[in-house]
Simulated scan of single mutants.
Amino acid sequence: MMDRIRLLHRTCALLLALAAADASAELVVIVSARSQAPALNGDQVAAIFLGQSGRFPGGLEAVALDQRLGSPERDGFYQQVTGKTPALLKAHWSKMVFTGRGQPPREAPDSASVRRMVAENPSMIGYIDRAALDASVRPVLVLR
């Protein structure tokens, strides 16, 4: 009887984990609806968010805006776009700051804040949950 209960608990835990993974947010990289920035590929977005480029293709200034540290959106974004875990990202920025080559992007608390700030500044680029999209911003890259 105890074996059946354990098996039932494990099965329930597995189903919950699968449901949570399925419900994970689809992220979009956004710019202001007023921005002239073109659609971007993952390498271009990674270069901007890792401080390796401060410009969009074509030369316009690009200012990256992060979600808050530890948020699932931030962790998912960096894992998908750069392949970096939070620990690797911290090491990257420690090196960049120490060598004087850059500062990490400014942070906003959530997708709504990122959307609002990006909409107000055509130089900004951020990432949000796809469900938070509206006409004030436009996607330049969809992450799946």
Rank of each mutant, 00 (worst) to 15 (best):
M1I: 12
R6P: 02
R6S: 12
L8D: 09
T11V: 14
A13K: 07
L14C: 12
L15P: 06
L15H: 00
A19H: 07
A23P: 09
A25S: 13
A25F: 01
L27H: 05
L27M: 12
V29N: 02
I30W: 01
V31K: 00
N41V: 08
D43W: 09
Q44A: 11
Q44D: 12
G51C: 13
S53N: 13
F56C: 09
P57R: 08
G58I: 08
R68S: 14
L69M: 13
P72M: 04
D75W: 01
Q80F: 05
G83M: 09
P86S: 14
P86D: 09
L88T: 11
L89Y: 01
L89K: 03
K90A: 15
W93F: 05
K95P: 00
M96R: 15
T99G: 03
G100K: 06
G102E: 05
G102F: 10
Q103S: 14
P105A: 07
A108D: 04
A112S: 12
S113C: 03
S113D: 13
A119T: 03
N121I: 06
S123Q: 15
A132M: 08
L133P: 06
V137N: 05
R138D: 08
R138M: 06
P139C: 04
P139E: 10
V140H: 04
L141Q: 08
L143F: 02
